Each structure stands twice: as C-alpha cells, then as structure tokens.
Simulated assay, not measured.
Amino acid sequence: MKQWLGISEFVAVAEHGSFTEAARQLHLSVAQVSRNIAELESRLALKLLYRSTRRVSLTEEGKLYLVHCRHLVESLEQANQALSSLKQTPRGLLKVTAPVYFGETKLAPLLNQFLREHPEVELDLQLTNSKLDLIQGGYDLAIRLGTLESSSLIARRLGSRQQYIVASPDYIATHGRPQQLSDLKPSQCLRGSVDYWRLQTSDKQTIQFRPQGRIHCNSGPFLLEAALMGLGFVQLPDYYVQNEIATGRLVSVLDELQMPNEGIWAVYPQNRHLSAKVRHLVDYLKEALAA
C-alpha cells in the first residue's frame, strides 16, 4: 500500500494548483499533503512539482506522471462508487429512449412496473426509431435492437428477437407458398425502413434479399396490417407477428433461412454504468425479458 501513498495528493495539487485547495478537497492538513508528496518524490527519486510562495507547477516528469496517475485515481473512485452503489436505492430522473413499437408494446408495461417498485425514480421516455446521441441528449439509457454499431457506449444484452417472413393465408393460396428463396419474387414483398432482408443459407452464408413491392413504409404496424390484408410478404420481428402466426392469421415461410436470433440491447454511456438507477433498471429489464 505504501506505493499508493501521495498519489491522490499529487493529482489533487496538480489539478488545483494549490496545496491548500488540495488539502481541503482531500480533508487533510496542508502539512500532511506536503509530506505525502515529498515521500512520493523520494520513492520515485524525481521531482514532480516546482514549489514557490506564489504558485505550484509541474515538472516535465510531473506532467508525464500526472497522465497515468489520473487514471489510477479515477479507477479507484469508480471502484469505491461501485461498492457504494450496491447499497443505493434507485432515485432521480431516468432519461430513456427506445424504438416506437417495441417501446409501446413490450417496454412500456415493464417500465411502469419498475416505477411502481421504485417510487423515487422519475422517467423521461422518448420513443423514436432514430438513433439519438445519448451523450449530447443527456440520456441515461437506450434500448437498441439488432446488430449494434461500434461505439464507446457500454452494451448489455437483455434478450433476443427473431425475424419472420410472413403473409396471409389468402395471399399464399393465390400466389403460392415459396419453398426456396428463388420462389419469392421481390415484387411480392412489402418494403420497410431497411432496404434489404437478411437471410442465412444452410451453410451459414448471409444473403441480402431486396424487396421491391409497391408498398414502402417505415412503420411496422402499417406493414403488419398490409400483410394481414393480403398485400404481400413482409419480414417483421417476432413481437409483431407471434400472435398472428399462432392464430393462423399469418403464415411463416422460409423458416430454414432465418438468421440467428438478434440482440435486444441496453446501451448507455460509460459514466452511467455505476448509477444505481441505471443498474437496477438494466437488471430488471434483463430478468423480465428473459422471462
């Protein structure tokens, strides 16, 4: 532990430019701060600070050492906060964004139940199919579906979804049920917000199939209604079509070409991952969606 002595004091003095202010921030005496930094310099056999009656400044060695010491102090603070947060009660404002249909049908009842269980939490929920900038918008959490783009955000998988190609029984009776992908005509397919459907062959090769039907809409419920009315094939996630497949109102085709299950993700900035309100909500959603 002796090798840590003086590091927090050195970082505090370097950042505040004052032994007095550093001592106040660390709840130590000025003399103690000075002694601990002097001992640190002695162990390193290097001078880290220039001291005068008017100001404190860093030596070249001190500037280099500060870069690394800042990370050490920040990591220690995060570790302490992680332990402390285990005992914290979720409270305060949670700003969340999620896709519209998934948010309305799947997420809303879970969030409402979470709020009932945690009366000190407030919720600001923005439902949009646009991927908002979490940092700029001040969001604590986003729910994202499918394949994630590379970013500095933290992501936790909450569950999974499966894509289905479906059509109404009447449409299939009139136009035939495709037995292989070549039987599926692009002109028979309803187009959504994504330009192509992702499928997978038996040897695990990914196929991009481009629908070219006369209907194009970025609303899943609209496309679902169009399929129910016999206007063509559509690819939609399971939470749109499960009930309709189960009741026979829609028929799933080409199931052997389905991609592996896609992720349902909780995504949040790194500085939010130790927050009790975010941690409790993510844990709750993961358990609820798994059930």
Rank of each mutant, 00 (worst) to 15 (best):
G17V: 04
S18A: 14
A22M: 10
Q25C: 07
Q25T: 02
L26H: 04
L26F: 00
L26Y: 03
L28M: 12
S29P: 01
V30L: 01
S34Q: 09
I37E: 07
E39L: 12
L40K: 05
S42V: 00
L44N: 02
L48V: 07
Y50M: 08
R51S: 12
S57E: 13
S57V: 08
S57I: 04
T59D: 10
E60N: 13
E60D: 14
E61K: 09
E61S: 06
L64Q: 11
Y65W: 14
H68Q: 15
R70W: 11
V73W: 10
S75P: 00
S75L: 15
L76C: 04
Q81L: 15
Q81I: 08
Q81G: 02
L86I: 11
P90D: 01
R91Y: 01
R91P: 13
L94I: 12
V96A: 01
T97C: 10
V100P: 02
Y101H: 12
F102R: 01
T105G: 01
T105C: 03
T105F: 01
T105A: 01
T105D: 01
L107E: 03
P109S: 09
P109G: 06
P109Y: 11
F114K: 01
F114Y: 08
E122Y: 06
E122W: 07
E122Q: 15
L125A: 12
L127I: 06
S130R: 11
K131P: 03
L132K: 14
G137E: 06
G137H: 11
G138V: 11
Y139F: 15
D140R: 05
D140P: 13
L141Y: 14
A142N: 06
I143L: 10
R144K: 06
L145M: 15
G146C: 02
S150L: 12
S151H: 13
S151E: 02
S151I: 03
S152Y: 05
L153H: 10
R156C: 00
L158I: 03
S160A: 03
R161E: 04
Q162F: 00
Q162R: 14
